[in-house]
Design a protein around this nucleic acid. Structure first.
Lengths: 290, 290
DNA sequence: CATAATAGCTGACTTTAGTCAGGCATTATG
DNA sequence: CATAATGCCTGACTAAAGTCAGCTATTATG
């Protein structure tokens, strides 16, 4: 398949040009690229000098000089790290934050200009998601969030939409047993969100009733994030959360129109049991003793 | 949709890291990036010095010095352009070709390493195609080729596969009137191939019988290249080719399962006519007087 | 508590990239 | 055929990036 390599490389050429153009636009703010990158790294939350150095792959001497020049410009201040006075942390001043915002605006403007001229923007974004997640040096992060948070709701909406698409019967949340949020918040339950580079890419809910039995609900992975073992990671994380909440037995229901989910549960040691609710959508029921 | 911007930018971060890593790997061959880029540009077929300069956006002084240093290394030779002695053309020596091959190997290795770790490589490539074509600074090129050439056959295979997928009846080339290649080669007809950055992305055939009436066949556009008006461009090009061959009347048949094709023909001034063949697949017939 | 390791800083570099004015052939143009 | 324009070259820069040895202050370790 040398053709795949040619296709990959056509892609690489196209994005190289795009990346170069963005760098050039950064120069427009009268500061060399190295300094601009430092401002952006700090603005993005990388405050530890060593961390920035590792991220940007800079020599310590060069890093030091860049910090000094940005300090002279009044864009940042440095101070010793509270836990270790050998290390330093950098912080943007107000002027620095304005500069960072200006760089962000440049990037945002490029992004929206490009999206605007794309004939099928949503399809393009899905493609970009897949590429970003495959190339991504950051792996996935899993955190516990409120199921009513915006990120959680984004995932849930996508989950409902996918069920509606894939179940032969369609899917209407109102007809299903929609767990109220409290059941998926500690101390009764939990709701886990998986993110990649800050954007939500998957979720799973643990719906408890205060007793030793709880249910796994709403396991969903962004199509672009499938194939990386994220569902398994989320399931492991939610089982850990359940143990933490002293849950002894986990249950879940699912539908045979979702074969990848069935396969996952079977492989992860879940055993099939009889129907335990009268929800109209599921046709398979599983249990796992922790 | 500020979320789209966030998604775009996650993509940009991921590919920036990837691009940077490739550049770094180029440095491993003991030559600054500028010089490496020149070697690659020439290796890729850009021999004219002015053309390389425009492509890499280099100052004439800098370009000159890079050429000189590569000449000193024995990687290339320059000579005056045969048509215009002010211009120069650069040519890689054998040593230069070996260096170019080494750079190509580095790129290929990165590409295949990345593709190997992608869980769904074909889906990833489709995504990359779409991104590359949307960002691509090079627009499409249309050229006349032999319908039996490899690139043409790639398109035709994809065309047949798509018909098989989209027609309710399925599609079997053998049951259709497959024009023999001679009918799509001058002087009887023509076959046009659209490429993007060297890779085939669409085709159209003009099937003539020597008389004033000819048929348009095999119009196909790579899904990743749809929405850019390429079908219209190909139709215009094939009409021009038909005029060039003194064709007076063009005909074509198509199927209502391909609504975008029907819309295109109607918009381009084609008028619907009665069935003019007994091919089992088409259910719509069009004509255009040139 | 002496010693080693770590994080960052400074000075003194080199290399790479980029800029600009002027020059020399060569080619186009009125 | 004089003049202008073009394409490339050279010299003489400046700016940015990257390297390296040695320094100081701090923290970890046996």
């Amino acid at each position: 398949m040398s053709d795949s390599i040619a296709r990959f490389r056509r892609f690489a050429r196209a994005v190289t040009a795009e990346v170069g153009a963005l760098d050039t636009s950064f120069l427009g703010r009268g500061r060399p690229l190295g300094a601009a990158r430092v401002v952006n790294a700090i603005g993005a939350g990388r405050t530890d000098v060593a961390e920035i150095r590792a991220y940007l792959d800079l020599d310590s001497g060069l890093m030091s000089r860049l910090l000094r020049s940005l300090e002279d410009e009044g864009l940042l201040t440095t101070e010793p790290h509270p836990d270790d006075a050998r290390r330093r942390v950098a912080r943007l001043t107000e002027a620095g934050q304005r500069e960072y915002a200006a760089y962000e605006d440049l990037s945002d403007a490029r992004a929206s200009a490009l999206l605007a001229r794309a004939p099928r923007a949503e399809e393009l974004l899905r493609a970009m998601d897949l590429v970003a997640l495959t190339l991504g040096r950051d792996r996935f992060a899993i955190e516990e969030v409120d199921p009513r948070s915006e990120a959680a709701r984004t995932c849930l909406q996508a989950y409902y939409a996918e069920l509606a698409r894939r179940l032969k019967t369609g899917f209407d949340v109102k007809l299903s047993r929609d767990p109220e949020a409290q059941a998926m918040i500690r101390p009764r339950g939990a709701f886990l969100l998986a993110t990649a580079d800050g954007l939500p890419v998957g979720c799973v809910g643990l719906k408890g009733r205060g007793g030793p039995v709880a249910e796994i609900k709403r396991l969903w992975i962004d199509p672009a994030a499938r194939g990386f073992g994220l569902a398994r990671q989320l399931m492991e994380a939610v089982e850990a959360a359940a143990r933490d909440l002293s849950i002894a037995v986990l249950r879940l229901d699912t539908n045979s129109a979702l074969p990848e989910a069935l396969a996952l549960y079977r492989k992860a040691g879940w055993v099939e049991i009889d129907r335990f609710n009268d929800d109209p959508y599921p046709d398979h029921f599983f249990e796992k003793v922790l």
